[in-house]
């Protein structure tokens, strides 16, 4: 028993783990807030597209940073933020224009984004390991600066995502009605896209660009198995996201697994367990009422 306690104490005393836990909990909690709007708009995979584009931003950040003589990767996150927001806004504009060629244009942008990023990172002096860290996350190597950036971005996401929740909800749920209420729906659509882009960037360090959507979407998928309201779905999804973020990180530490992938696998296991037990829960609930 005391052996376990020592193990926990060692783990929690490690500043790297402290930083990783803080970021995993914060990002795990913030991502589903945005994910709830995306699921309502049937854009569950939007994060993936933005993630692909963000990789080019990361690589351009590396290139510019190298040109300015900065530390390798110092401008990776700023580059990702710019590329992701620009990509998200372009996706939104193409989507609302409703042209059939838009679908193809987006596909070109996504593949161009990931291929261009992979090529440019090498040009900027990165290695395959660098590339992998952006694609699958690098939660165990966070610097203090990384944590500060993550906290700031998560704070923006939560502040906007929660204070503007009624407008974001109304536009996501029924755009025509929202327009007939006088809401500037185009503006709120862009806010949603920008929030998704910021979430992709901040989640990049936790689970990597290939898995960012999972952090936004899976907690919402779990929660909506039993909730009846939008507000509760969002609140529970945030809690589950933060919980699976922390638990996945701890499991990764104990079993020496890649943290990002472990967090996502854990969240999907929780979904499976919830989906399997749902019929039982529904029966208990209806027996009570």
């Amino acid at each position: 028993m005391s052996q376990y306690l020592d193990y926990w104490a060692d783990m929690l005393a490690d500043p790297l783990i402290q930083r990783a836990l803080l970021v995993a909990i914060l990002v795990g909690g913030a991502a589903p807030v945005v994910g709830t709007y995306l699921v309502q708009r049937r854009l569950a995979l939007l994060g993936d597209g933005i993630g692909h584009v963000a990789l080019t931003g990361v690589a351009l950040g590396w290139l510019i940073g190298a040109g300015l003589g900065l530390a390798p990767g110092a401008l990776a996150v700023p580059g990702a933020v710019v590329a992701a927001v620009a990509g998200a806004v372009i996706i939104e504009v193409v989507r609302t224009s409703g042209r059939t060629s838009g679908d193809l244009a987006l596909a070109l942008m996504f593949y161009g984004g990931i291929a261009g990023g992979a090529a440019l990172i090498k040009v900027a002096g990165g290695t395959s390991a660098t590339l992998v860290s952006y694609l699958f996350g690098s939660l165990s190597t966070l610097s203090r600066g990384d944590v500060a950036t993550a906290v700031a971005l998560a704070a923006i996401i939560l502040a906007v995502g929660l204070t503007a929740r009624w407008a974001l909800f109304a536009v996501a749920a029924d755009e025509d009605f929202a327009k007939a209420c006088g809401l500037p729906t185009a503006w709120w659509n862009i806010v949603t896209a920008a929030l998704a882009a910021l979430t992709v960037t901040v989640a990049m360090r936790v689970v990597g660009l290939l898995l960012v959507s999972a952090l936004m979407i899976v907690p919402v998928a779990i929660t909506q198995l039993w909730t009846r309201s939008f507000g509760r779905t969002m609140a529970w999804a945030a809690l589950i996201g933060a919980g699976t973020g922390a638990a996945g990180l701890v499991a990764a530490y104990w079993y020496d697994l890649p943290p990002g992938a472990t967090i996502v696998v854990l969240a999907i296991l929780v979904y499976a367990a919830a989906a399997i037990s749902r019929p039982v829960l529904v029966r208990v609930r209806s027996a009570r009422t």
Partner: peptide, 17 residues
């Protein structure tokens, strides 16, 4: 998409630009 209560739907009717 996401579960939404009738009350939430109706309250959203009170938003303006």
């Amino acid at each position: 998409g996401v579960p939404t209560s009738a009350l939430e739907v109706v309250r959203a009717g009170l938003l303006t630009g």
